[in-house]
Design a protein around this nucleic acid. Structure first.
Lengths: 219, 219
DNA sequence: CAGACGACTGAACGAGTGTTTAGTCTGGTG
DNA sequence: CACCAGACTAAACACTCGTTCAGTCGTCTG
C-alpha cells in the first residue's frame, strides 16, 4: 500500500492500465478475461484486487479523471479547451486516455456527463477571457455559445471514432487518436472560416428570431 | 408474403417495430426476450422469423433507413439537413426512429457511418444552393464546411442522449426526443449569432493559417 | 523454525445470453 | 375427412459472463 504511491507499477496498477486500454479500444463490453490476459494475470486476481468489474471501471474513471485534470492544469494557458483532447491524442502516452473518454461519451456514464460539463465550463472561461481581450465577439448567451462549440468537438470525436471502427476490419492499425487528428485537419480550415466570417451573409434570421422571442419568449 | 405489403401489421412487422423501439431506448444490448415480450411473442418466434438477432437488427436498420429516406424526400425542400432529426422527433410517430439512429451513432454500425455521410451530403447540397442564392457565404472547402456543421449536430444528439440517460434514474419519463428539442432551444440563439457574425473579431488566425499552408501544405 | 498473511491461480458456479428442438395449434387444400 | 405447411410456444441447450472458492506459492514475522 505504501509502495504503490512511490512505484506505480504494482500488479494492481498494471491491471488498471490494461483495463483503460482495453475499455478504450473495444468498449466496456470486453470481458474480464481479456483484460486479465492483457495484464498477464488470472481473471480471479482482478476481482481479488478490485472487488468487481464495476469497481474496476470506477477506478479507471477516477484515474482518467485525475490524469486529465493534471494535464489540463498545466496546459490551460496554452490551448483552447476543444484542442486539449487533440493535443493529448498526439502524445502517445495519453492516447489510450482519449480512447477511454470517447468510449465513455458513447456509453453515457457519469464520467461522460462530467467531462462534457467540464469542457463547457472551460470553454466558457476561455471565451470570457478572449472576449475581454477583444479577440472574440461578445455573445448574448455565453454559456449557450460554449455548449454550442463543445457540441462540435464532441461530434467530431464521435465521427472520428465511427470511422476508426469502420476501418478496423480492413486495416486494424487505424487508431482513434489518428482518426481524430485527421478529422481536425479536415475541418480546421472550414472551422476557421466559420469563426472569422460566420456562415450567413445577412443578419435577417437572427433578427427574426430576436423579434419573435421578444414577442413570445415562452418556446 | 403478399399480405405483408398491404397490411404491415403482421407479427413479423410487429416484432420489428418493437425491436426498433427497444433498441432505440435501451441500446443494442437488450435481450431478445425483452423484445419478444414487448411484441407479445415468444423468444423462439423471433428467431423463427428473422434467423438471428443480428439479422433482426439488419432488418431494423433497413426499415429505419427506408423510412428516413421517405421522410427526407418529401421534406428536403422545407428544412435544413440538420433540422430533419429535430423535426422528426417532434412527430410522435417518428420519435422511436430518432432514438434508434442515435443508438446507432453511439454503437458505430454501418448505418451510423452511412447516416452521417448522408447528412453531410445533404448539408453540402443545401449549402451550395444557399450560396448560389446569396444567403450563405461561399467557402474555400465546401465539403469540409458541411462536415463541420454536421459534427455540431451529431455532438448535440450525443449530448442530449447523455443527459436523457443520466436523468433516467430520477425521472424515467425523459425521452431522447424531448432532450433533443430542449437542446436545440438552448443553442439556437448562440448558433444563430455564430452563423451571422462569426466568433472572432479579426481574421488574423485565418490569415496565419492560410499563409502557413501556402508555405508548407503537407500537414 | 512455525505460523500467518497476501498475491495469485485453476476450476468451478450461477445467471444471463442467443439459439435449437420437439411439439401444439390453426387454417387451408386434396 | 386426412393431410400438411406454417405460426407459435415451452423447454432445454450451449456458451459467455462476472464471480467464488479451495488451495499453492513466496515472504515476512515472532
Amino acid at each position: 500500500m505504501n509502495v504503490r504511491s512511490a512505484d506505480d507499477l504494482t500488479t494492481r496498477a498494471r491491471i488498471r492500465d490494461a483495463a483503460v486500454v482495453r475499455f478504450g479500444r473495444d468498449g466496456f463490453r470486453v470481458g474480464l478475461r481479456a483484460i486479465a490476459s492483457d495484464a498477464g494475470v488470472s481473471p480471479g486476481l482482478v476481482i481479488h484486487h478490485f472487488g468487481s468489474k464495476e469497481r474496476l471501471r470506477g477506478e479507471c474513471d477516477a484515474h482518467v479523471r485525475r490524469t486529465i485534470r493534471e494535464v489540463k492544469a498545466e496546459a490551460i494557458t496554452q490551448w483552447s479547451p476543444g484542442q486539449i483532447l487533440g493535443e493529448m491524442s498526439n502524445a502517445a502516452e495519453y492516447a489510450p486516455l482519449v480512447g477511454y473518454v470517447v468510449r465513455c461519451l458513447l456509453d453515457g456514464g457519469a464520467l461522460a456527463a462530467e467531462f462534457v460539463e467540464g469542457m463547457v465550463a472551460d470553454a466558457a472561461a476561455y471565451l470570457e477571457e478572449a472576449v475581454d481581450a477583444g479577440t472574440v465577439r461578445p455573445s448574448s448567451d455565453p454559456p449557450g455559445r460554449a455548449r454550442y462549440l463543445i457540441a462540435t468537438t464532441v461530434g467530431m470525436l464521435v465521427i472520428a471514432q465511427l470511422e476508426a471502427d469502420a476501418g478496423r476490419g480492413v486495416s486494424p492499425t487505424v487508431d482513434p487518436a489518428g482518426a481524430l487528428g485527421q478529422m481536425w485537419q479536415t475541418v480546421l480550415l472550414p472551422g476557421l472560416e466559420m469563426m472569422t466570417d460566420g456562415l450567413l451573409t445577412s443578419s435577417d434570421l437572427l433578427d427574426e428570431y430576436r423579434t419573435a422571442m421578444a414577442g413570445d419568449p415562452s418556446p
